[in-house]
Amino acid sequence: MKVRVTVNGVAHEREVEPRLLLSDFLRHEIGLTGTHVGCEHGVCGACTILWDGEPARACLAFAVQAEGHDIRTVESLAPAPGQLNALQQAFQDSHALQCGYCTPGILMTMTAFLAENPKPSEEEVRHALSGNLCRCTGYQHIVDAVLLAAERGA
């Protein structure tokens, strides 16, 4: 069936099977492979995207459900090709990623979180992060990066 969805400000129209997961739609139909798939059961958070501005798991929605909605992925964050936005820059500055697989989901979760809570405490950052699993970093540098981005007014 036909689905029309806006991804990173661009309107897309595709013919899809109803069962196509939004994560697969973004990655393999639209070609936005920055959204990663880590569990396909809604726990790891690697596929977190913004759904009408709110963080959501792309693996727990069918593409057809996104009909008429506004989806944002990690590819939308950088202000221009080759650049980083303030949150991304804080991640590099703090060594907040190692393998980088969970990173896009964390960036999207934190983008929504900082929009709602621009000056969070460490405890609040850790709570907000707790729905995204990272296996490499032990989270400490991620927490540092989010606090740094907040301090810089990201």
Binding site: G42, W51, A112, G131
Partner: peptide, 9 residues
């Protein structure tokens, strides 16, 4: 209940 990403939907 789960996490914000789940509570969104």
């Amino acid at each position: 209940v789960a996490h914000p990403q789940i509570r969104t939907r």
